[in-house]
Design a protein around this nucleic acid. Sequence first.
DNA 1: AAAACGGGGAC
DNA 2: GTCCCAGTTTT
Length: 359
Amino acid sequence: MRKLLVDWFSGAARDLPWRRVPSPYRVWVSEIMCQQTQIATVLPYFERFLARYPDATALAKADENELMRMWEGLGYYRRARSMHAAAKQIVADHDGEFPLNYDHAIKLPGIGRYTVGAILSISANQPVPILEGNTLRVFSRLIGLRAAVDEKPSQDVLWKFAEGLLPRKSVPDRTRGPAAINQAAMELGALICTPREPKCLICPLAKCCVAHARGWQAEIPAKTNKIAYEPRSEFAALVSDPSGRWLVRQIPAGSRFAGMWDFPKAGPPEAHTLDEFAQWLATQAGGRWTIGEQMTSMKHAVTRYRITLHVHHATRRGSRPPAPWSFHSADELKHLPMSTTGRRLLDRLTKQNLITPSN
DNA sequence: AAAACGGGGAC
DNA sequence: GTCCCAGTTTT
């Protein structure tokens, strides 16, 4: 199976930037960016990130705002904050070099069992197993695992399989060793053993695959918990000062979108209705508020929530709003990290102002 | 064990 | 719409 995999991989591997130069730092960055994110989405971010932060030392010194701005749009922003903290730890404890030691690496924030295996195997050819979306699908189909893959016994079986797939004796040739085997298994999941309509006809492992033999491809991997999507409404207020700057705040640490800048915005449990939103605004930013007409609405998704954001013009009377609230021009906000909806909103406002100059 | 965490691509 | 994506951390 190992030979079939690496032979197929040598001809089918996609040309990815972190494969050209698989240094520990570059593989680390790629692995974090790729978590729950498709490769195509990551590519432009990766190049830009590496140019700005070429090594752990540079990343450790990064400015928070700039770092979040580099990550803006990738989502799961804790990944960026964890990387920043890990980079500082690497400078402090490991002389600025990513530790190629399992026990040290897995202690770094944001690095779990999958990521440590990926980094050590891909960058250093160490025999450490991996299990993620692709290999989970490949392995569960190969062995015909019909139990739900997210249950503990299934996870144990799959991790064991991942471990058994790696050679017992060291294979220094990284085109045939753990580096190639782990990447080949993932690549097979991404290109051949796809969630829907897997390409079994051209799969190098078809002859060893239980799911293929019994026609179980559509049932495996089996999942227990279906995602229960939940619709919800959120509200945003657009308030400008006499010089056309917008009322915004930097979201405090610990909450969703921590560190990102945004317009006044709230949803459940703080605000279920426009009236509750107005009350929330008064308690948060002070002053006397009047909610005006709706400017637009935007639909977007945050994890299992399907959100409709109602955007209203608003006026606020009173003294200067307390921290963290402040007025910033669109120009200033251009360089600050914002959520994707915040950025989209700002873009629309900027374009509108080009046509009809601000009040 | 389940929920939270973002956003986009594919169908 | 629904599912999925080179998962980790918190509850």
